[in-house]
């Protein structure tokens, strides 16, 4: 009987939401970006053989004045145009992790979860894999402005290495105080770079470094610096979550 009423409720929501959405199918697939964005954005080009090259010629690997010079547009939305949103997002993550530590931290029943005794191959190979996984995470958040990826993905991969060590070795212990120091250092540096933007250029988190050449590692001004800080912060926070969830000895 309960399931019947649940299905009726779900179908009512489907009717109201769905009937409102039917006429909007036109916007899919023939999405016209020229109605949403300006001509400056639309005519940006990075190749020689483009029809727009007389208007605005910007070559990949040579150009140096495309707004913020990050090859990855999603990264430039997250870290440049809407960097204040990212600051809020990092704050939400910090608050949630504070809640986890407050709930699980000082619990008397918070003993370490122990698994069956891991065999020698798992034990040895996890030590070999640890630096490789950390290196891959760092690669992803350092190259966030050129290739797909960025601070959040790379930070999660670094935290996954801590997770692997906890699952593979029963006597592994994360040095969580260092992680807390790293987290507060990177969070503070994010704010300090934002304030430097106010003092030098006049706006919070505005870019004040050289933009460089699109496609090179040192390009995009503040974008790689802020994404590296976000990556360090996310990796420290999620490692702390793993530490609190697994429990201490």
């Amino acid at each position: 009987m309960k399931k019947f009423w649940a299905i009726i409720t779900v179908l009512l929501i489907l009717f109201f939401l769905g009937s409102g959405l039917i006429p909007d199918l036109k916007i899919y697939k023939q999405n016209n970006l020229s109605q949403k964005t300006g001509k400056v954005y639309l005519n940006r080009t990075v190749n020689d053989d483009s029809p727009f090259k007389e208007i605005d010629k910007k070559l990949y690997g040579e150009a140096n004045d495309v707004e913020n010079n990050a090859a990855n547009s999603v990264t430039s939305v997250i870290v440049d145009y809407r960097a204040l949103d990212t600051l809020g997002e990092v704050t939400v993550l910090f608050l949630a992790i504070t809640g986890v530590i407050a709930l699980l931290g000082k619990s008397k029943k918070n003993n370490r979860i122990l698994f069956e005794k891991p065999n020698y191959i798992l034990n040895a190979s996890s030590k070999i894999l640890l630096p490789l996984i950390v290196l891959f995470g760092f690669y992803i958040f350092i190259h966030g402005h050129i290739t797909p990826g960025g601070g959040f993905q790379g930070g999660t991969i670094v935290a996954a290495s801590v997770l692997m060590m906890y699952f593979a070795q029963n006597n592994y212990k994360l040095k969580n105080n260092r992680m807390k120091v790293l987290e507060s250092f990177s969070g503070l540096s994010f704010l300090i770079f934002g304030l430097l933007g106010i003092f030098i250029m006049g706006d919070f988190l505005q870019n004040f470094l050289e933009l460089g050449i699109m496609g090179k590692l040192f390009s995009g001004g503040l974008i790689p610096i802020i994404y590296i800080l976000v990556g360090l912060k996310v990796s420290a926070e999620l490692s702390n979550v793993v530490y609190e969830f697994m429990g201490e000895e």
Binding site: N31, N43, R44, D49, P51, Y60, S73, V74
Partner: peptide, 21 residues
């Protein structure tokens, strides 16, 4: 929505990057 040396010609042929962010 990523500029590369070969694929993307202009940004008018990108999918919209804002929903992805």
């Amino acid at each position: 929505p990523i500029y590369t040396a070969k694929l993307a010609v202009t940004s008018s042929r990108f999918v919209d990057p804002v929903p992805q962010a």
